[in-house]
């Protein structure tokens, strides 16, 4: 729970969305999507963080008896982040491979030229 992390993650998400919306180069669009992903990952992993927390090895009785309920770092967000990173990597790889094939077919990766389907 660090405020800097939250701010940083929001900044990353907004920057990523800005990149997707304004850059015409398709590779930059893919990079923008990646940046949004990293922002979200940072947000999730920050949610579970406890300054000075230990590894999450505990017994249910410790928790219920109120023996420092927040003494460990929440493991669930880390698992979520791991999953999210893997998915993000796959999406990026697929997007880039599509960009390569678009370049072969259209001879351009400018978004303004890749618009045969419209209207």
């Amino acid at each position: 729970m660090i405020i800097v992390n939250y701010i940083a993650s929001i900044v990353l998400i907004v920057l990523g969305l800005y990149t997707v919306c304004t850059k015409k180069n398709l590779i930059k669009v893919v990079l923008g999507l990646g940046i949004v992903d990293y922002g979200v990952n940072l947000l999730i992993v920050s949610l579970g963080f406890n300054d000075g927390g230990t590894a999450p090895i505990y017994q249910m009785s410790d928790l219920l008896n109120g023996v420092a309920p927040h003494f460990f770092v929440d493991p669930v967000p880390q698992a979520l982040t791991l999953t999210s990173i893997v998915i993000g990597a796959c999406v990026d790889a697929m997007a880039l491979s599509l960009v390569i094939m678009i370049y072969r077919k259209y001879k351009s990766i400018n978004a303004d030229d890749v618009r045969r389907l419209h209207g």
């Binding site: 998400i13 669009v29 979200v40 967000p77 997007a95 259209y106 618009r115």
Partner: peptide, 24 residues
């Protein structure tokens, strides 16, 4: 087809990112 796939991917993964942020 490639173009449609790419557009689907960009908009779709933006949607997924929104969902994930909401879930977080």
């Amino acid at each position: 087809t490639l173009e449609a796939g790419f557009k689907y991917l960009v908009i779709g993964s933006m949607g997924s990112s929104f969902t994930l942020t909401g879930i977080a």
